[in-house]
Design a protein around this nucleic acid. Structure first.
Length: 271
DNA sequence: ATGGGCACCTGGCTGC
DNA sequence: TGCAGCCAGGTGCCCA
């Protein structure tokens, strides 16, 4: 589910509630996430102050005094801020209880999310180290993507969903960015021209930034830290719009499977 | 090195 | 009403 905009929206939502607070407890009701939550984790983080709420790609980073919590929302996860005494609901898996009496509560029906902890530099963590530059930072530019796409035969849509090459773009925003860049999702990456690449970089940045502004996209499970949905769905041009008229040219939007994920595009606008 | 396919898990919807 | 089958905002890992 959550791609960069949803994770960033969650980060912004929790930030004012967590930074400077001390962790009273980590209470785990279901440790079986993508990776099991370490049974010693509650003891390790209890009593620590939260220094910073950061993000790297689709990971939320809660920087503590002596380590960093790495939290991933997976496909169906959400993290909410609520009073610690709020009764648990189905698929609530853990609470980070703060000294303010509020809790960060993680809910994830599919349990593809994860909660990890490292006392080393998180940038060196094996899951974070190989990640591409942040798409909204200066390091992600046409030169970078040009080099990353040379001699790559994969379809460009699959390439921009590969976190070693482009980070933060998932299935929704991949289709949306390619629509904005007017590039067909099935084009071989290395066949894109310099101009295509420049438009694609702008499109990726634009769609991600726009979605952050709208609080993300809610299709099914996603809610922000305050429980409210994201409103970017109304601004989607192609995703889940198969058969509906293109919002630019009225041609019916097409859908096909690409690497076991649905891809949407306008056969008229995109070449 | 690159790329493809599978696995992990639950729930909602469709169609018989 | 029940149930099988398919699909869903991600991504690490194994194999060719």
């Amino acid at each position: 589910m959550p791609e960069l905009p949803e994770v960033e929206t969650t980060r912004r939502g929790i930030e004012p509630h967590v930074v400077g607070r001390r962790i009273r407890a980590l209470t785990v009701s279901e440790p079986r996430l993508r990776w099991p939550i370490d049974a010693r984790l509650p003891a390790r983080i209890a009593g620590q102050r939260v220094v910073r709420a950061g993000r790297r790609a689709k990971y939320l980073l809660l920087e503590l005094e002596t380590g960093t919590l790495l939290l991933h929302l997976g496909m169906s996860g959400s993290l909410r801020v609520l009073p610690a005494e709020t009764p648990r609901a189905r698929h609530d898996h853990f609470d980070v209880v703060l000294d303010s009496g509020t809790a960060l509560r993680f809910n994830d029906p599919r349990r593809f999310g994860s909660l990890l902890y490292t006392e080393a530099d998180p940038a060196h963590h094996p899951l974070l180290a190989p990640l591409a530059p942040e798409p909204l930072d200066a390091g992600f530019d046409a030169d970078y993507l040009w080099r990353a796409t040379r001699r790559r035969r994969v379809a460009i849509k699959q390439l921009i969903m590969n976190a070693r090459l482009v980070v933060g773009v998932g299935n929704i925003y991949a289709s949306e960015a390619l629509f904005r860049a007017r590039i067909r999702p099935g084009r071989e990456a290395r066949r894109l021209t310099r101009n295509d690449i420049a438009r694609l970089v702008r499109a990726i940045r634009g769609v991600l930034a726009g979605a952050v502004k709208a609080g993300g996209t809610t299709l099914r499970d996603y809610v922000g830290a305050d429980g409210s949905p994201g409103y970017f769905r109304q601004k989607l041009y192609v995703y889940e719009r198969a058969g509906l008229p293109c919002r630019r040219c009225r041609t019916p939007i097409r859908r096909r499977m690409q690497g076991q994920r649905a891809t949407y595009w306008c056969p008229q606008c995109q070449r």
